[in-house]
Simulated scan of single mutants.
Amino acid sequence: MSLDAGELLLQTVPFARTLGIVFDSAGDGRAICRLPDRADLHNHVAGPHAGALFTLAESASGAAMLTAFGDQLSRAVPLATTSTVRYHKLALGELTAEARLPASREERAQVVAKLDAGGRPEFDVEVEVRNADGVVVATLTVGWTLRPNRA
């Protein structure tokens, strides 16, 4: 890919741009991005709305996924299929999401092999969301699939 995964995600997911998500890094099945502290994103307890926090984490997971499987975009569409969110603490201030694809090289090969066979592989991306002090305020597991393009 000529674009990096964070830039590609921001181009294809306008809502992430609307929230002002900024990517710090993306590569090797990992991605780190930030959500600025903006009053217009706050909820009734002065932190970012759960939807904004989720979008931050889901965006990080998507970029991590793209760094691992972006070479498959010509033949498959990546889709988030599930998500489990645990909110640990009240999130205040700027937030950082760090996503990682826990799959090994062998597991990546299995995903690609299933796609080669016409299947729809599924895999998870783990995300931690931290506040400015580095405290984990939420954790997510985002399930992804690569849906083969229809001929």
Rank of each mutant, 00 (worst) to 15 (best):
M1D: 13
M1F: 12
L3T: 13
L3D: 13
A5C: 08
G6P: 10
L8N: 09
L10W: 05
L10N: 08
L10S: 10
T12G: 14
A16P: 00
A16N: 02
A16V: 05
A16L: 12
R17W: 03
R17G: 12
L19Y: 06
G20H: 07
G20E: 03
I21K: 04
V22A: 14
V22Y: 01
F23L: 08
D24Y: 10
D24Q: 14
S25C: 03
G27P: 07
G27K: 06
R30I: 06
A31L: 09
C33Q: 04
C33F: 07
R34V: 08
R34A: 12
P36L: 11
P36Q: 11
D37N: 14
D37A: 15
A39T: 15
D40K: 06
H42C: 14
N43K: 04
N43P: 02
H44F: 11
H44L: 15
V45G: 00
A46L: 14
A46E: 13
P48H: 02
H49Y: 12
G51L: 13
A52Y: 00
T55E: 05
E58A: 14
S59K: 02
G62K: 08
A63R: 09
A63Q: 03
M65W: 07
T67H: 08
T67N: 08
D71E: 12
Q72C: 13
Q72I: 03
L73T: 01
L73Y: 10
L73G: 08
S74D: 15
S74V: 10
R75D: 06
A76P: 09
V77R: 14
V77K: 14
A80T: 00
A80Y: 07
T81M: 14
T82Q: 13
S83E: 00
S83R: 00
T84K: 12
Y87C: 01
Y87Q: 06
L90F: 01
A91Q: 02
L92A: 09
L92F: 02
L92W: 07
G93H: 11
G93F: 11
G93E: 09
T96D: 04
E98N: 08
E98K: 10
A99S: 10
A99H: 06
A99N: 04
R100I: 14
L101N: 15
P102F: 08
P102E: 09
P102C: 03
E106W: 04
E106N: 12
R108G: 03
R108H: 11
V111W: 05
V112W: 04
A113C: 01
K114Y: 00
K114G: 08
K114Q: 15
L115R: 02
D116V: 11
A117F: 00
G118F: 01
G118R: 01
G119M: 08
G119H: 06
R120I: 10
E122P: 00
V125T: 03
V125W: 02
E126C: 07
E126Q: 13
V127M: 05
V127W: 01
R130K: 15
A132C: 05
A132D: 13
D133I: 04
D133K: 15
D133S: 15
D133L: 15
V135W: 06
V135T: 15
V136S: 05
V136T: 14
V137E: 09
V137C: 12
A138D: 01
A138R: 04
T139H: 03
L140D: 00
T141L: 09
T141D: 06
G143M: 05
W144A: 01
T145N: 06
T145V: 10
R147L: 13
R147P: 00
R147G: 00
N149S: 11
R150M: 10
A151H: 13
